[in-house]
Design a protein around this nucleic acid. Sequence first.
DNA 1: AATGAATGAGAGTTCATTCAT
DNA 2: TATGAATGAACTCTCATTCAT
Lengths: 235, 235, 235, 235
Amino acid sequence: MPNTPPSNPPAAGQPPGAAPPPAGRQPRNRRLPAHERRDQILDAALHEFSERGFGAARMDDIAARAGLSKGGLYAHFESKNAVFQALMQRMLMPDLLFGERPPLAGAPAPEDALAARVDGFLDRAYERLEDDRFIRTLHLLVAEGPRLPDAIAGWRESHLRLLRRQQAMMRRGVEDGALRDSALTDAVQLVHAPILLAAILKLLQDEAHARSVLPRLRAAHRRLLLDQLREPGPD
Amino acid sequence: MPNTPPSNPPAAGQPPGAAPPPAGRQPRNRRLPAHERRDQILDAALHEFSERGFGAARMDDIAARAGLSKGGLYAHFESKNAVFQALMQRMLMPDLLFGERPPLAGAPAPEDALAARVDGFLDRAYERLEDDRFIRTLHLLVAEGPRLPDAIAGWRESHLRLLRRQQAMMRRGVEDGALRDSALTDAVQLVHAPILLAAILKLLQDEAHARSVLPRLRAAHRRLLLDQLREPGPD
Amino acid sequence: MPNTPPSNPPAAGQPPGAAPPPAGRQPRNRRLPAHERRDQILDAALHEFSERGFGAARMDDIAARAGLSKGGLYAHFESKNAVFQALMQRMLMPDLLFGERPPLAGAPAPEDALAARVDGFLDRAYERLEDDRFIRTLHLLVAEGPRLPDAIAGWRESHLRLLRRQQAMMRRGVEDGALRDSALTDAVQLVHAPILLAAILKLLQDEAHARSVLPRLRAAHRRLLLDQLREPGPD
Amino acid sequence: MPNTPPSNPPAAGQPPGAAPPPAGRQPRNRRLPAHERRDQILDAALHEFSERGFGAARMDDIAARAGLSKGGLYAHFESKNAVFQALMQRMLMPDLLFGERPPLAGAPAPEDALAARVDGFLDRAYERLEDDRFIRTLHLLVAEGPRLPDAIAGWRESHLRLLRRQQAMMRRGVEDGALRDSALTDAVQLVHAPILLAAILKLLQDEAHARSVLPRLRAAHRRLLLDQLREPGPD
DNA sequence: AATGAATGAGAGTTCATTCAT
DNA sequence: TATGAATGAACTCTCATTCAT
């Protein structure tokens, strides 16, 4: 994004993201263990890529944010693409879009156990929304994923695996009589959908709105899960 | 994305979007009505911005796709930012993330009417997922929105207005006895969430997967809506 | 001067001259007599060339200032160069640097007549300093002349002729006993030098300073001329 | 001055300065001490700015003349404006228009001393006229100063200070009886005016004329100074 | 004559990448 | 390893000039 005119009058609403480039760098920090440096660099890259987009992110800024010089950065990664790839590798392990653990199913359990499990699930899910790195990773995935199909091939596969496993568990829960057969057991995604929506809301709406809406959304989400999954009971 | 790295292993998944630049331009198609040109340009811009991201999109490519020269483009928009702003304006009118019409509420109606209304809503919603421009606009909104808070201020406001109106209608539906009081009437967003999830799925997963999952998702979505909203009936 | 960033943040002190581009143009002014239009255009060109320099002046701005469109301008001048050439032609007639009339010499005259003639000369000379067009023309001549030797060939010649004539008159004044033989009659340029200095001062210093210095400079100039040229008298 | 007009009669006097762009660049002269490079760049910039004007000068040419690439140039100066500003800073120290040292005043001295001092002054002053950098700087100052009031604010101030100091010295010379009270002691500028005129002459007239006129001008200037400043003596 | 959309060749500026130190 | 000056290929934006209207 060369000009953005400086000249160019940086009028309100201009693309180069609100936050200014990272700050200067500390004085001479030498020789970190290579893998620590790599992590610092990837953190910096996550920040910059999500802040400006892959194309518009600058190696200079990534380097500065990671606390070394541009030249030093190239000692660890041979190109901008390589940084991006490595970032995608790292982001892969815990599934980001649909949670790394099966949400609700499990061995048969008393009624209260369902409520407990639902609350545990919601706790984890909505907590992640407060994690800056989670939000940025999601942003990056949605923003750059479509134009980099190959880069996220890994994510795609692991996501599919995860979904299948979760779907199977739901089915088993129904067979076991622990869960009611419902729309949610037809498609696990419906369990996750409100969280994705909440995340996107956080990305696009201002904090004030997010803070006021999220609790209501979560409460409704809870009601939905219990309503749909709770077995009517033997009365 | 200035220089195409000629050095390192051009491994699969390198960022420069898959699709090659647009095709060349017809010979001398002079003097279109200004508003027609503007529309052509905005279409082209939507394509390029969503394909490569705002930062990495090239004015040259937008111009070529719109059928004029780079210089000519600047006769209509004074900067890349201005193109982006105009695009965001245009995308604004029909709400993109949550549909421009109240989804399900209305005057009291017989049971069949609810099913009919639900189906109408789902028809519209899932049809839009097939519209390339809708998907691209959503992508652009999520990808660039967070770094351009001002640019999407308009969208944000209209989205809030819409949501409030829809929420009010749901409430009225409940009061009228047309809808059952449920998680969905607590938070309309739950009605839309599965569609957002479907859209993101289309962005990130390959077509094959999308084609196989979407119908099941839609069916479950339908079941959910009817289940939650249908009044138990007087029997 | 493409960017001047815009990008460039138009910080204080940036080259593109303080004054903003000319104002908009009146609504549809048609068909002026060609020579009137030419004059308007040349006036506009003088303004723009002196304000921004030949290279940085824009045909658009010249046209707007002259009250027509860029296309219309090209109906009168076939190129930017042509405008410049015509401007130089026009500026030529009255000598700009050294006054079009012999400054001080003439037929023998009584002592008072010298004072009167000196005052007349100074009146004319210092009045011209208040003429915007004179100052701009001088500026343009000094700014662009050195890089456009051919364009000012005409001026150069006429200036030489003028100088020679004036020198001859001075000599005759001395021979006639009307003027004292002095440094000034050795080189007429010395008579003009203070005025040139005053003009350059007006170009480079702020108005306040100019207003305060010019009168003192003029008074000293007057004293110098009378001192040097006045015949001691027959006492 | 983007496109060299290929159409109209390339008549004599077309703006694009006479001298062709600078020569090519040596092969890979890497890594100069930063301040040396800065100086080289400013020298190059002085040349190019004075040759073509600020607006029409090209960063490419400045870079080439300074012996590095355009991109390298931007490692030292962040914009064309910045180069100009720095150039103006550097030019500031010795006053360019009116000499850095008081011209003629001093402690009382025998008559011959006045002549000696006058000759010293003239030596220095007219020698500077042979210095290409002096002439170019003057040209640049007069050509671009008026459109860049802020850029020359520094020069303006230092020029005023200098003038005041010189004027005070003249006054003291008169009080000491070393100088005659005259037009020149009323306004020091009159002492410098002929030199400014000579400089402008060098800019605008061809060398031949300058060579023939300058000596006569200088002789007359000398006569003027001695005539005006020499105390009548007690004879 | 006049208009202004359109062209196309730059010009200023940015930035991934290299490499002497 | 680390640095940062240097390169060179883009990129955004400008502007003289053309030409359909």
